[in-house]
């Protein structure tokens, strides 16, 4: 196995990996793949490089292709680097009825990027996503684990301003939940 040395979970994350693995019967450790890939995105800069996926395959004792085929199926896994702050704007049905298109246009103009692009400073990536089960509080967007709802241009300015000030990587499995 051609795994680069520097790719390894932190001790805290590794402890959590073992906790996750214990939830499934013996021999069914592959079941933990999705949660562990979320952890991997948190631990390794918000995306899954081939090397990271190989590392996860090693951990679970499965073939690398079993990880690639899964990682490429689910929309939350990033197979390319993303900005520190991944902005996921819901574009479906009720959100669209309530102005999701305007939200996307506003963010595109504000940040000078299009859907799917990252700002040159690597701070923000904009991505439109399908329904996030927040239709009663539309339009909305998700950043990390947080739902930002009932969006207006002013709210968007505040929210993005805060993340810019924070200047830290934000991921779905927030790092505050990775404890020993």
């Amino acid at each position: 196995m051609n795994v680069k040395k520097e790719i390894a979970f932190s001790p805290e994350a590794l402890a959590l990996v073992h906790k996750l693995l214990s939830r499934y019967p013996d021999g069914k450790q592959k079941s933990a793949l999705l949660p562990i890939l979320h952890l991997a995105q948190t631990e390794f800069d918000g995306w899954l490089s081939p090397e990271v996926m190989d590392y996860v395959a090693c951990l679970l004792n499965i073939q690398p292709v079993e990880v690639y085929e899964v990682a490429s199926f689910y929309s939350m896994f990033n197979l390319k680097p993303v900005g520190k702050c991944l902005i996921e704007v819901c574009r479906t049905g009720p959100c669209w009825l309530m102005g999701a298109e305007d939200v996307v246009k506003y963010i595109e103009k504000k940040l000078g990027i299009k859907d799917g692009q990252t700002t040159p400073d690597g701070m923000f990536t904009l991505k439109t996503v399908e329904c996030l089960a927040s239709c009663g509080t539309a339009p909305m967007m998700q950043i990390g684990e947080t739902y930002h709802e009932n969006l207006t241009p002013e709210k968007i300015d505040d929210i993005l301003g805060n993340y810019e000030m924070l200047n830290e990587r934000v991921t779905h499995w927030d790092k505050k939940h990775i404890k020993a």
């Binding site: 592959k30 079941s31 999705l34 939350m76 399908e130």
Partner: peptide
Amino acid sequence: HCGAGAYICGEETALIESLEG
């Protein structure tokens, strides 16, 4: 157990596949 973004996993047999990793 958490999924990772796929509407189809609300279908029960797809959900089971997903739960199997």
